[in-house]
Structures are given as C-alpha cells and as structure tokens.
Amino acid sequence: VFVDDHLLEKVLELNAKGEKRLIKTWSRRSTIVPEMVGHTIAVYNGKQHVPVYITENMVGHKLGEFAP
C-alpha cells in the first residue's frame, strides 16, 4: 500500500496529539489507511483543495477518487 511519507507523518502526528484539523495535500495517489479515519483531508483536484472527510468505508481507496 502506498502513502506519501509527508502525509502519513502529518496524520500520525495529529493522532498522537489527539487533534483533528484540516490537512492539505497534493498527493491524490496516496491510499487511504485506517490511521486517517476521522480526519478531514483537503485533496487538490488541479484547481482547488476539496475537503474530504475520511470514513471507514474509504480505507483501501485512493484520495484522488474522492476529489473529482
């Protein structure tokens, strides 16, 4: 499973602090992992960042699938 390192670091850091804030990313190719559930990730679609709230059903899919 591929997840960009910088994105995973941000998610794990927020989980350690117990925070839930918006994470901006250009990494549409990253796979959604269970650690991301409950976070809102702003995924770049080529024009703007689209906020995507991550749920359990999204695990295993790519971030780009949810930012048309």
Rank of each mutant, 00 (worst) to 15 (best):
E9R: 14
E9N: 15
H49Q: 04
G46V: 04
E13K: 09
G38Q: 08
N45M: 05
H49W: 13
T31Q: 11
G46Y: 14
L12V: 09
N15I: 05
G38C: 07
T31W: 10
V1F: 07
H49P: 04
D5R: 15
K24H: 12
L12F: 06
Q48R: 13
H61M: 13
K47V: 12
M36G: 00
P51N: 13
K17R: 12
K62R: 13
I32W: 00
H49L: 08
V52M: 07
S30Q: 02
L63M: 06
L8T: 02
V3A: 02
L22R: 06
Y44P: 04
P68Y: 08
V3G: 03
L63T: 05
Y44H: 07
R29V: 12
V52C: 12
R21M: 12
K24A: 07
V43T: 07
E19Q: 13
K20I: 07
T25V: 02
V50E: 11
I54M: 08
P51K: 13
S27I: 07
V33L: 12
A42H: 05
K20V: 07
H6V: 15
E56I: 12
K62Q: 10
S30E: 02
I54D: 00
N57D: 13
Y53P: 11
V33M: 09
V43I: 11
W26S: 08
E19F: 06
P68R: 11
Q48F: 13
P51I: 14
I54P: 02
M58C: 07
T31N: 12
V33G: 03
E65V: 10
H6D: 14
L7F: 01
N57I: 09
S30G: 02
L7E: 01
V33Y: 04
S30D: 01
G18F: 05
V52P: 00
H39I: 03
P51M: 08
Y44M: 05
P68I: 11
H49E: 04
V33S: 05
E65I: 09
K10V: 14
L8K: 04
L63V: 04
F2K: 05
L63E: 00
E13H: 08
E13S: 09
K62I: 11
A16M: 11
K17M: 10
P68T: 12
E9Q: 15
P51L: 11
H49S: 05
T40D: 06
K20R: 11
P34D: 11
F2M: 06
I54K: 00
A42C: 05
H61N: 10
V11L: 06
T25C: 04
E9S: 15
K47R: 12
A67N: 04
G18K: 08
L14A: 09
E35A: 14
F66A: 05
A67K: 03
K47H: 13
V50Q: 11
V37R: 11
I32R: 00
V33W: 03
I32S: 00
Y53W: 09
V37S: 08
Q48E: 13
N15E: 03
V43F: 02
R28Y: 07
V52Q: 04
V37M: 14
P34C: 14
S27C: 15
K47L: 10
E35C: 14
K24V: 14
M36Q: 01
V33A: 05
V50R: 09
P34R: 13
S30M: 03
N45H: 08
L22A: 07
S30C: 07
V33D: 02
I23N: 01
N45W: 10
N45A: 09
R28L: 05
V43D: 00
G18M: 07
T55W: 13
L14Q: 09
N15A: 04
E9L: 14
V59C: 14
E35V: 15
A16R: 13
G60K: 07
L7Y: 00
K47C: 15
V3E: 05
G38N: 09
N45C: 09
L12S: 06
L8G: 01
L14T: 02
Q48T: 14
M36C: 03
G46H: 15
P68K: 12
I32K: 00
G18E: 06
K47W: 10
F66E: 05
E13A: 12
E35S: 10
S27R: 05
D4I: 01
I32P: 00
A42E: 06
G18C: 09
R28Q: 05
L22W: 10
H61Y: 13
W26V: 05
K10S: 14
E13L: 08
P34A: 12
R29Q: 11
F2L: 07
P34E: 11
I54Y: 00
N15P: 01
V59L: 11
L12C: 10
N15W: 02
E56F: 14
V11F: 03
G46A: 10
I54V: 11
V33H: 05
Y53Q: 13
Q48D: 11
F66V: 06
L22P: 11
Y53L: 13
I54G: 00
W26T: 06
G60V: 02
R28D: 03
G38I: 00
E19S: 07
G18T: 04
K17I: 12
E13Q: 11
L8D: 01
I32T: 04
K47G: 07
N57M: 13
I32C: 09
L14W: 03
H6Y: 15
A16V: 07
E19K: 08
K47D: 08
H6K: 14
K10W: 08
I23H: 01
Y53V: 10
L63Q: 00
L14Y: 07
G60T: 11
H39N: 02
Q48S: 13
G38M: 08
Y44A: 04
V3I: 10
V3W: 05
K62S: 10
G64L: 08
T25I: 01
T25G: 02
H39F: 09
G60C: 15
A42M: 05
F66P: 01
A16Q: 11
E19H: 07
E65G: 09
D5H: 15
H49I: 03
V43W: 02
P51W: 05
L8Q: 03
